[in-house]
Amino acid sequence: MITVALAKGRLAEQTIEALERCGIDCSVLSEKTRKLVLDEPSGRLRFILVKPTDVPVYIENGVADIGVCGSDTLLEEDRRLYELLDLGFGKCKLCIAGYAGFRPAGGGILRVATKYVNITKKYYHDLGENVQIIKLNGSVELGPVMGLSDVILDIVESGSTLRENGLTVLAEICPVSARLVANKVSLKTKAQEIKPLVEAIKRVL
């Protein structure tokens, strides 16, 4: 049996669609239940639904064998795992956003609000800039709006949240999409189960 970690929310829905196109019965995942561990009827797969940022943790520790999460999470977490496929959905961009023509208010040091502390550190380090990073866990756009930060580093999908709050994209960092990841040991020790599944997913993309 292989254990599949899915990132709760939109990404899980799209992953389920892809799995169903491979002929996998995902009905247990659409049932209304509070169960956290769900077995597929054939007994070949076991699903766990976890917070998106936790997917790489479950995978790295081998508690789940394969999983799906955004490349933004992978970049931020930088875990020891295999990234096997770009699933092509869950597309968005990692961007720096803020008010156009803003001036840093923190005595010249840029203040950046973000969920992605590691990515932010690396991005500004590569630019050779010293910044103050303010870690937020959601509604990051409030940072510049309320004056908590000068800019934000966040994922931008359509850009409507930014627009409605008067913010614009100041720089694009990289594109983001959903990835199929695997534990480094499982890929070998459970190759007979994982390889065909990866091939099947590849075919329906």
Binding site: V185, K188, T189
Partner: peptide, 8 residues
Amino acid sequence: ISRHFGAP
């Protein structure tokens, strides 16, 4: 590697 542990 062993299937009983997630890392080498």
